[in-house]
Structure formats: C-alpha cells, structure tokens
C-alpha cells in the first residue's frame, strides 16, 4: 500500500517537472513554436540568431532551478531531522545569511562575479560564511536543549549578519551595492556556461554524497542517544551534516541569491505526503519536490517578464505550505 502511494507521488512530481520544464522552454516573452524549440535544442538555427541563445538561457535557467530547488530542499530536510524541528531550514537557521555575509564581503568589496577568480572567491566566502554559522549554532546548541530556542538563535544570526551587511554598505560604491541588492532578490538566471558547469557538478556530487546520511537520518528521528545505540557515529554524522547542508545551501545562495522558503516548505510537505520512513526514499523525493517547486516559482517569475523577484514568489507559494503543515501537525497532535 505504502509503496504504491509513494510511487504514485514520485510519478506525479516527475510528471510535473517534465511539464513545467517544457513550458519553461516553450513559453516566455518571446513566443516560439514547439517545432522551433525542438529544432534549436537539436542544434538547429532560427531566423533570429538570438533565439538559440534564448532557448539556451531558458534551458540553463530551468536546470539551475531544478538543481537549486532540490539542493535547498534536501538541505532543509537534513537540518529538520538533525535538529528534530520542522521549522528548521537553511534560511531559518541563518545559514543563508552566513553565506550572504560571505558574498557581501566579496561583492561589496568590489570583486565582480564575472572573473573565474572572483567566482571562486565568492563561492568560498559563501561556504565559509554558511559553515561558520552552522558551527556557531552547534556550539550554542550545547547550551540550549530546546530546539525552538535554537531556531530563535538562528534567526538572530540572520538579523546580525543583515546588520553587518548594512554596515558594509557604508563603504561600498553604488554599483556594488545595487549588484548586491539585486542578487538578494534571488534569481535562477544569469549563469554562464562555465558557472553552470561548476554549479551542476557541485550540486550533483554533494546531493549524491547526502545518501551517505541515509542510515544516520533514519536513526536520528529517534534522537542522537538512540541513533548512537544503533550504530551511528553521531560525531562524524554531525560533521557531515554541517558540511553537506552548509555547502549545498551556500552554493545555491552564491549563484541564485538567498532563496527562501523552499528549504523549509518542501521537506515539511514531503514528510507528510511520503509513507516511507526510509531516507533512501525521502531524500530523492524531497529533492525532486524541491525541483518542482523551484521550477514552478521560476515559471511564475518568467511569466511576469522577470518583474516579480524569485523570493516574492517562493514566499507566496512557500509560506502557506508551511502554515498548512504546522496546522496539520498540531491537529494530529504530533510533538515537535
């Protein structure tokens, strides 16, 4: 029974991804026929030479959305299980803020995204910021047993880094400031081929590495004490969780801006919908569900001629999901 309903869920999500992916390729401000799109994807040409670039850009951006959404969602899932709190996620815990601070230091310092060195610098700064926040959280977690309090600490990190970034603005020039602000709105567009290659590789490799956490995650639902008793090395698991979630969230944040809500809403929703309790199943389902939501959000952004910022759309879609799940959990009297 359970298996069948999970397979149906996976089927629906994948179908949704295919439909949205195709719509994202086909629809846009420049109307094209499917024949044109097929032809261009097959390497053909169109009357307007810009069209092949447009299709390429639509394709790239869809790929980025799929990977970024998936990465944020599994990062959120792992953090929710680890902190045993359905409200945890890269955004809430201040991990995205940490990455943002890293990016701000580099961008507002005047380094441009274009150059390879600048690129690596920003990625590294983002990762350092994200992982630093996670370590800080873990340190604080030693003194705070209550996980809601820990979330508040995470939120405070968010405000704190936002304040630091505001201070950085004082020294930044207008262009860098504007660049940072635009980045902060979030977008899946704007990655060139080499950036896309780095992004795709990193996200896929890290997401696959997350499967190392299947057994630890299965065990951690019972808490660290029980997890340790069923053969999980809690210390090394904790380290891997910090590294994987921190780096995943940081990479997405660096390339797409601090994209909110996907990291909380998707794992919550999937954990309600999926019957299997095995993270070997939950992880990939959360990934594709994150992809679906991100692709959907990006589709709405594109249909507005990019005038709606991505974060506005993810908030409008994500916040109601989060509230719905909280209400549903309370109804079923599930303890947090």
């Amino acid at each position: 029974m359970n298996l069948r309903s999970d397979i149906a869920l996976i089927g629906v999500i994948i179908l949704g991804i295919f439909i949205l992916f195709w719509m994202n390729l086909l629809l846009g401000d420049v109307p094209m026929k499917s024949a044109d799109v097929f032809n261009l994807l097959a390497g053909g040409t169109a009357d307007n030479p810009a069209w092949s670039y447009i299709v390429e850009s639509r394709l790239n951006r869809s790929i980025v959305a799929i990977l970024a959404g998936g990465a944020l969602a599994i990062s959120g899932l792992i953090l929710q299980v680890f902190f045993r709190n359905p409200l945890a996620g890269p955004g809430v815990l201040g991990i995205t803020s940490g990455a943002s601070l890293g990016v701000a230091v580099v961008v507002l310092g005047g380094v441009t995204m274009g150059s390879l060195l600048g690129n690596l610098g920003i990625i590294l700064a983002g990762i350092i910021g994200a992982v630093a926040v996670l370590f800080l959280l873990l340190f604080i977690a030693r003194f705070i047993r209550n996980s809601v309090t820990l979330l508040v600490a995470g939120l405070m990190f968010g405000y704190f880094t936002a304040a630091l970034i505001n201070i950085l603005f004082l020294w930044a020039n207008e262009t860098a400031t504007r660049k940072y602000v635009v980045w902060g709105l979030g977008s899946f567009e704007g990655l060139n081929q080499s950036e896309l290659l780095i992004f795709t590789t990193l996200i896929i490799v890290l997401s696959l590495l997350c499967f190392m956490l299947v057994k630890p995650l299965n065990a951690l639902v019972a808490g660290t004490d029980y997890a340790a008793s069923i053969g999980i090395n809690v210390k090394s698991t904790r380290l891997l969780i910090i590294l994987f979630t921190g780096v995943l969230a940081a990479i997405v944040t660096v390339y797409c801006g601090p994209v909110g809500f996907i990291g909380i809403a998707v794992p919550q929703l999937v954990r309600v919908l999926v019957k299997s309790k095995n993270h070997a199943v939950i992880l990939p389902v959360v990934f594709i569900a994150g992809s679906l939501l991100a692709l959907g959000a990006d589709f709405i952004v594109r249909m507005s001629s990019n005038s709606l910022p991505l974060n506005t759309v993810t908030a409008i879609v994500g916040a109601p999901i989060i509230i719905w799940v909280i209400v549903k959990m309370n109804q079923r009297n599930v303890s947090f």
């Binding site: 846009g28 420049v30 069209w51 670039y53 639509r58 207008e174 262009t175 001629s305 005038s307």
Partner: peptide
C-alpha cells in the same frame, strides 16, 4: 522592465545600442 530574452530578441535588430553604465 523587460526580460533578457525580450531584449535579446529585439536588440539583435537595432542599429545602435546606447549604453550608460559604470
């Protein structure tokens, strides 16, 4: 506000491109 693809589609035909930028 125009999307990139809109301006790419149109810009390809324009004779001049006037840019004010830093």
């Amino acid at each position: 506000v125009h999307s990139n693809e809109q301006v790419w589609n149109d810009g390809i035909q324009a004779d001049y491109w006037v840019i004010i930028a830093r």
